[in-house]
Structures are given as structure tokens and as C-alpha cells.
Design a protein around this nucleic acid. Structure first.
Length: 571
DNA sequence: GCCGTTTTCGGCCCGACTGTTTTCAGTCG
């Protein structure tokens, strides 16, 4: 049983216990354990076999027993019992913003409501307002929450949030009452999706800043407005929160607002151990409540004996320990990228001529670009046959003669057929400068079939890297249930690079899998999968995923110089 | 439910804002 599945069960138990009204600290214990297992290097099955579960911090007698039962039998009696006791629909109701376990439990207990449609009807009928702690406004808030959840599935993709965030940021820069300003929250950590945006400002006139903030012209609704904090909803339904603090607290507030929540809990515990108290106003001496530092994030981390931790790493995935030991990675930067190796042209389903793509890339500082059009059997994407490939190679040769200090590679994104063989024979694969392979049809496979399909493809000596390995589309298609351990081992063995696909709804491999693969010494390519010149800018999201996966420059093929790259391709 | 060099019991990160409860619980980050 996979770590993720065990973690998933523990998260659900935590929610169910919340609904039952269990004490906060008990449910938190389940969530902490789930989170730890989710990012564990070791396979949970091995730990059970070796009887080592209790070595994991946050797992004691009771949890170890439950995890053992779950892993060994595939079932957990305690969990099954809870599910019988509490209707599953209540878990869905917890996802509605503004509804927590107490309110959901009250709605269930008093009105017997177990589904979101029934809840909506009850709100419309005014049945909730008579319950204790509920009122007319609560009903309206729940209705709005349901609507928002349905419209956006609760999460917005990184590129949309980034655009909204940048626009708001640029507007706020015009407010002369603001001293310092920063985006915060999951956007600053570059999470792949987010529920809302957080912005932080420092000022001596918080009320005026808040007034300026809510005068932004793209606002649909003001949700709340306090003295130091306000929340609005943009016209595209994304919620934006602003917090205003004194400038001496800016670093502490930025640290706090950037999160993640789990990182902050860990950091605050560390602060207590070191004799401090940490909140959004600063780091304080625990004994006399005296302000120690708070103006900058760096000084807070340093005071706690840590190296500065980049926002992308703040997920409680071992970064605090690494910062203590001064072993944080030197994260790759956008500037390190020398070229894009996953780009489509008019030869297949791209919109631009190779020459235009190359000129744009060169102008933007790249040293090379690889044009990877689709292969012959992918008719819907105008996959190339042998004659078209020859024509394309010839065109690229001519272009390369006329362009200095830049090289165009002729690659392919060759389909992996359902049996794991490739869409071109070796004789044709040899014609390309390099070969990227991917899956675009035949998605219905079980875990073993999908894994074997890739393993076989990697055996082909012409294959350089695998495009969007899990084939997920965020919000639309679940990732393949691959045996990633086998995949990563084979990638290492065959020297196959794995792509971090930068398209915002792919980001595939994702941050967590990147980190796990890196620990197995796998190497990566960051590609944009561009079909249009504007897509080339998606590179920044691939980079942020790489950074969230702890990657350094040397882990990534397309940070290498043209010379180094040619040597690798010619091997 | 976890954890421990003051504790095997009694702690567990901390604060803002809302709505409705006239003194605070619930939710969120």
C-alpha cells in the first residue's frame, strides 16, 4: 500500500473525528501523522515489516497499531466504523468555505442534512437560522460558499492566480501610504493551485491602505473589512486577503502569511524551544515579551539558528531540519535555463513557424531550442510522417546556418503505444537530435500496464526523456497510478530524464514526486510543451515546481550549456 | 493521539474577524 493512500485514510479519519466533536489535539495528531507519511522517504510497507513505525515522529502506540492493520489487511476497522457512524456527505460539506466541523455537525444533528444539495435547499428555506450560532447571514454565506465551490472546484490554477496577483500588486504600488508590499501565501510559495491570494503591506495608516485596497476596479464583493485585515472577491471569483502591519513587523508578518501552515507550526514550536514566541508581529522573548526581531524574514530564521528558507521549500518537508544543518539546496533559478526542449511548431499542432520560435527564444536569452512535434499515429495533432520529418530536418539545418550563437535541435515527442513500443522505428528515431516520448492515447490502464508501458519505452536507447510522466490534467484527469519507484529506478538505470512539464494544468511531475525522484538521483528536463509563443513563458511555473522539489541547477538538463548538451545527445 | 533532562499528566502555535452568544464560539490562515 502506498504512503499516499495511508495518508489519505488518516486525513479522512481526522475530518470524521472533527465532525464527531473530538478534541482538536487528537484530530491534529492524525493530520500531522498523515502529512509526515505523505512525504516520507521510506516506503510505509517496509516500515511496517521492519516494525519501525514508531520511529516516525508523531506516530505513537495507537497510530502505529492502526497503520499496521491498514497496511497488512488493506482495511482499518476503526475507519470503517467511523464511516458508518458519520455520513460521507458531511466530509464534502466541510469543503464549503465558512463551514467547519462544528457547524456541519450541528446541521446534521438538528436537521438531518447529509448532502450539499439538501443543505442548499435548507438555506433557501430559511431552516438554518433558528439553530444555535446560526443566523440569516450565516445562511447567505453558506449559499455563497456552495456557489463558489461549484464554480471553481475551490481551487484556481497557478498562472491565473499569478496574473491576478501581479495586477493587484501593481495597483497597490500606487498607494503612497504603503511602505513595503509583498505577495504572500501559496502564491509566494508557487503552489500549483490555490484557494485564495494573500497580500501583505506595511504602513502607519492601515485604514487608508485598506480603503485604497477595496477601491480596486476588479472587485465583485467585499467579504470583510477590519482595522488591519480585509478580504474581497475579484470578478473572476478569486478571493484576495490583505493584511496591514507596522513596518517593524513586516518580516514576521510575511513569514506568517507565506506559510505553509505546517511550516509555521513547526517554526513556532522551534521558537518556543529556543526561548522565544513567534507571531505575525515578531519574534519575542518568551520571558518578558520583549520584541527581538521582525523587520525581515532572514533575521527571524537566523535568530532561530536556521539558514534563510526560500518560500517554495516551506511545506514542512524537512526544510527546517536542513536549514539547521545548513544543508538547504541551492535552488535552480529561471536564469539558469539555457533553452526549452519541448516546443511544438506548425509541423504538428503548434501555431508558429520554427524560425519565429527560434528568434523569440534567442531574443529572450536562450542558447538553444528543441522542436518536438508529434509522431505519425497522433493524427489529431498532425503527427509527422517520414517525409515531413526529412523536410523539417532540412529546414532546421538551413535555419541553423543563418543564426549565430544559437542552435535549433530537431526533436520529436514520439508516442508510446499501448504495448510500450514507440510510434517510430529505430531507423527514424536515429534521424532526430534527441527523442522525447509521451502518452497521448490509451489512458485506460491499470497501474501495472501503465508502468510497464513506460519501463519498456525507457529501454529504447534513443529515448532521452519522458514528457509529462503521469499525464494528469489538474481538475480534469487523474494521474496514472504508476509504480513511481520502479519508474525512477529505471530512469536512473537507463539515464532517461523525466520532464517537469510547465503547462499550468499539468505541472507534471509534481513537486512531491520531483523531490522523491531527486532522492533517487534521477535527472530532469523542464519543458513548456508550448504550442504558441506565449506559452514559452510557462517556464517559470516549471521552475517553481522544480524549486518546490528541491532541485538545483545540475539536476536539470536544460541548464547545461549548448556544448554540454550536444555531447549528451551525441552519446 | 503524541510527547517528555523541571512533567507519565497536562500540555499541545497564535491571532483576526464575524456573527450573534451581552462575553464568546467558530472559522480561517
Amino acid at each position: 500500500m502506498k504512503n499516499q493512500i495511508v495518508a489519505g485514510v488518516l486525513y479522512q479519519i481526522a475530518d470524521l473525528l472533527d465532525l464527531k466533536g473530538e478534541i482538536f489535539f487528537k484530530t491534529r495528531a492524525y493530520r500531522i501523522a498523515a502529512q509526515t507519511i505523505e512525504v516520507l522517504d521510506d516506503d510505509i510497507e517496509d516500515l511496517v515489516k521492519q516494525d519501525r513505525l514508531k520511529e516516525i515522529p508523531g506516530i505513537g502506540e495507537a497510530l502505529a497499531k492502526k497503520i499496521k492493520e491498514l497496511v497488512e489487511t488493506g482495511k482499518l476497522e476503526y475507519f470503517e466504523k467511523l464511516k458508518k457512524e458519520i455520513p460521507e456527505g458531511l466530509l464534502k460539506m466541510l469543503e464549503i468555505p465558512g463551514l467547519g466541523p462544528k457547524k456541519v455537525a450541528s446541521i446534521y444533528k438538528n436537521l438531518g442534512i447529509t448532502t450539499i444539495p439538501a443543505l442548499r435547499q435548507a438555506c433557501k428555506d430559511g431552516k438554518l437560522r433558528d439553530l444555535e450560532c446560526f443566523g440569516l447571514i450565516t445562511e447567505q454565506n453558506i449559499l455563497r460558499g456552495i456557489q463558489m465551490k461549484e464554480k471553481t472546484s475551490g481551487r484556481v490554477l497557478l498562472n491565473l492566480a499569478y496574473k491576478d496577483g501581479q495586477n493587484y500588486f501593481n495597483y497597490l504600488k500606487k498607494c503612497d501610504k504603503i511602505q513595503r508590499l509583498s505577495l504572500a501565501g501559496s502564491l509566494r510559495r508557487y503552489k500549483e493551485t490555490m484557494g485564495d491570494l494573500d497580500i501583505l503591506a506595511s504602513s502607519d495608516n492601515p485604514e487608508e491602505v485598506i480603503d485604497f485596497f477595496i477601491k480596486y476596479n476588479d472587485i465583485k464583493q467585499v467579504l470583510l473589512k477590519g482595522n488591519t485585515k480585509t478580504s474581497i472577491v475579484l470578478n473572476d471569483d478569486l478571493q484576495v486577503d490583505l493584511r496591514v502591519v507596522e513596518d517593524k513587523s513586516f518580516g514576521a508578518a510575511l513569514q506568517y502569511l507565506t506559510g505553509s501552515k505546517e511550516h509555521n507550526v513547526k517554526l513556532r514550536s522551534l521558537a518556543i524551544k529556543e526561548g522565544y514566541k513567534l507571531n505575525e508581529y515578531g519574534l519575542f522573548d518568551k520571558k518578558n515579551d520583549k520584541f527581538v526581531v521582525g523587520k525581515n524574514e532572514e533575521e527571524i530564521y537566523n535568530k532561530l539558528g536556521l539558514e534563510y528558507i526560500e518560500p517554495e521549500l516551506r511545506e514542512n518537508r524537512g526544510e527546517i531540519q536542513a536549514a539547521k544543518e545548513k544543508k538547504l539546496p541551492d535552488l535552480v533559478k529561471l536564469d539558469d535555463i539555457k533553452g526549452d526542449l519541448h516546443v511544438h511548431s506548425v509541423y504538428s499542432d503548434g501555431f508558429e513557424q520554427i524560425e519565429d520560435i527560434a528568434n523569440f527564444c534567442k531574443k529572450n536569452g536562450y542558447k538553444y531550442v528543441g522542436i518536438t512535434d508529434h509522431s505519425q499515429s497522433l493524427h489529431i495533432a498532425k503527427g509527422l510522417n517520414e517525409d515531413q520529418i526529412k523536410k523539417k530536418i532540412k529546414e532546421i539545418e538551413t535555419l541553423n546556418k543563418n543564426i549565430d550563437n544559437f542552435k535549433i535541435f530537431c526533436g520529436t515527442e514520439c508516442d508510446i503505444k499501448t504495448d510500450g513500443t514507440l510510434d517510430y522505428p529505430d531507423r527514424i528515431l536515429e534521424m532526430f537530435d534527441y527523442v522525447c516520448v509521451g502518452i497521448h492515447i490509451g489512458f485506460k490502464m491499470d497501474s501495472k500496464q501503465a508502468t510497464d508501458r513506460y519501463l519498456k519505452a525507457m529501454e529504447n536507447k534513443h529515448v532521452n526523456f519522458i514528457a509529462h510522466p503521469t499525464c494528469r490534467l489538474i481538475g480534469h484527469r487523474e494521474p496514472f497510478e504508476l509504480d513511481l519507484e520502479k519508474m525512477f529506478d529505471k530512469a536512473k538505470e537507463t539515464n532517461t530524464y523525466l520532464e517537469i512539464n510547465s503547462f499550468p494544468d499539468r505541472l507534471d511531475l509534481n513537486d512531491l514526486n520531483v523531490k522523491i525522484a531527486k532522492e533517487k538521483d534521477v535527472k530532469f528536463v523542464i519543458g513548456t510543451d508550448s504550442h504558441h509563443i506565449s506559452h514559452l513563458a510557462f517556464m517559470q511555473y516549471g521552475i517553481s515546481t522544480a524549486r518546490r522539489g528541491w532541485l538545483e541547477k545540475n539536476d536539470i538538463l536544460n541548464t547545461y550549456s549548448l556544448n554540454e548538451l550536444e555531447k549528451i545527445f551525441n552519446k
